[in-house]
Amino acid sequence: MSLAFAEPADDREAYIPFTPDPDRTKRNLRILTEAMETMAKTQSTKQTATANRPPAPEDRGHDHGNETHEVKEGETLDDIADHYKVEPRTVQRLNGIKQPELIWPGMTIRIPRRDPHTPKG
């Protein structure tokens, strides 16, 4: 077993030997793992709730010529908006997406029809 030494806070303090505690390390790892599992479950619940939510009142009824896009692995909202030459914020608003990083492969999102008078970017 080797000893590591902590740096002194100032010149008057002596070096204090530090011995790693395997039990404490295991406990901390268990706590971290449980926290990550809880976060993953919460994330999954948020995605399900977002996917199952009814459309906003202004979105019900006629689609007004909007296209749809199925999100593919690795795509971001910015990538999709850029592909269709629309603003990411507009896509986000149209689909009721509060956090753009909460899109996932297989999700179908609506793409607003581009104004023909808007210059292509």
Rank of each mutant, 00 (worst) to 15 (best):
M1S: 11
S2D: 13
F5G: 05
F5E: 05
A6M: 04
E7H: 05
P8L: 08
P8G: 09
A9P: 04
A9E: 12
A9I: 13
D10R: 06
D10G: 07
D11V: 12
E13S: 08
E13P: 03
E13C: 05
A14R: 13
Y15R: 14
I16E: 03
I16D: 01
F18I: 10
T19L: 13
T19W: 10
P20C: 00
P20M: 00
P22R: 05
D23A: 12
D23P: 02
R24I: 04
K26I: 06
K26L: 12
R27C: 04
N28G: 07
L29V: 05
L29G: 07
R30Y: 05
R30T: 05
R30Q: 13
I31K: 09
T33N: 12
M36P: 01
E37K: 14
E37S: 10
M39V: 06
M39R: 09
M39I: 08
M39K: 12
A40Q: 14
Q43F: 11
S44A: 15
S44H: 12
T45R: 15
K46V: 14
K46L: 15
Q47H: 13
A49Y: 03
A49S: 10
T50G: 13
A51M: 13
A51Y: 08
N52E: 09
R53W: 08
P54M: 03
P54A: 00
A56V: 04
A56K: 10
A56R: 06
A56S: 09
E58L: 02
D59P: 01
R60G: 09
R60L: 14
G61H: 10
G65N: 08
E67T: 10
E67V: 08
H69N: 10
E70G: 01
V71E: 12
V71L: 12
K72C: 01
E73A: 11
E73M: 03
G74F: 00
T76K: 00
T76A: 00
L77Y: 00
L77H: 00
D78K: 10
D78Q: 04
I80Y: 02
I80T: 01
I80F: 04
I80M: 02
A81C: 02
D82L: 02
H83A: 03
H83N: 02
V86M: 00
V86Y: 02
V86N: 02
P88N: 05
V91I: 12
V91W: 10
Q92P: 09
L94A: 01
L94W: 00
L94P: 01
N95S: 12
I97W: 13
I97S: 07
Q99T: 15
Q99G: 08
P100K: 06
E101N: 12
E101V: 09
L102Y: 13
L102D: 14
W104N: 06
W104P: 08
P105F: 11
G106V: 03
M107T: 09
T108Q: 11
T108F: 02
I109F: 06
I109T: 06
R110Q: 15
I111K: 05
I111P: 00
I111Q: 06
I111C: 04
R113Q: 15
R114D: 00
P116V: 03
H117E: 15
T118M: 14
P119M: 09
P119E: 09
K120D: 05
K120L: 07
G121H: 06
G121F: 07
G121M: 07
